[in-house]
Amino acid sequence: MENIIEIKNLDKSFKEVHAVNDLSFNVKRGELFAFLGVNGAGKSTTISIMCGTLKKDNGSVVIDGYSADTDMKKITEEIGVVFQNSVLDGVLTVKDNLYSRASLYGITGKEAKAKIDELSKLLDFENLMNRTLCKLSGGQRRRIDVARALLHDPKILILDEPTTGLDPQTRKILWQVVEDYRKSKGMTVFLTTHYMEEAADADYVVILDSGKISAEGTPLELKNKYTGDFVTVYNADEERIKSLNLPYEKIRDAFRIEVKDTEAARDLIVAHPELFTDFEITKGKMDDVFLAVTSKKLVGGN
């Protein structure tokens, strides 16, 4: 797969703060790319540079073959952005908001109506079209934000913490739409999130810390590299678990034993068949990866 985003040696400072420090990474066309980091790690700065709302100090940003230095207009035609906070006009209706934003891409009249109708069906807000935006719930507003970002069928959808604070049902609807779009239109999704289970579904993950990449890879590669496996044993005696001399955690009706890898888990079970009568082996979670890589816990998500 070819790269749709190529970022090389990107640098950006705000006075003494080096927000982005010699950052380089690629995003492949059509993939779900997760960009993780604590607040202040440089994620939003990188996104702002990609969108052309912030000038970089050094480095290069190439999106779908267009350089951010010379072809920003072309780039803006290719990207749709869902910002951390809704940036639509609260006093206008949903319809007015979407029509005015569609006009920014030259989509007007019947073409705009057709696109807005399509998105309203897809995101299930047909009955909200004449409602004032500021009177909608957080989840309803988020659906409108996503519709706004998809108005011009972008090749790249940038989601900047899109599901923070949303109820599970709305999160599910949003991801369903984004996934459908991604698959049917070959859209690339560039995601920043505080929800590690969302990052776990990504094709590729970059973890940013203090403006630099701390780790990158597929979720599986990261889990294998930065966390061990876990054997969860049910209906076991704690004294027996303790006698294994391995780190463990007591959970509601079981014990979660940490082992180096899947091979070690297998050996442990084979060595103690009487203890492991009811068990499961799981990989470490992305939370564990993030914690191991940055020694920081993500705030705001689960």
């Binding site: 052309g52 709302t53 803006t76 639509l88 609260g90 934003r101 920014l104």
Partner: peptide, 13 residues
């Protein structure tokens, strides 16, 4: 202040 300006500037207009 609201961020709407940012939303306008990420477009080709």
């Amino acid at each position: 202040v609201s961020g709407a300006r940012k939303d306008l500037f990420i477009t080709p207009v």
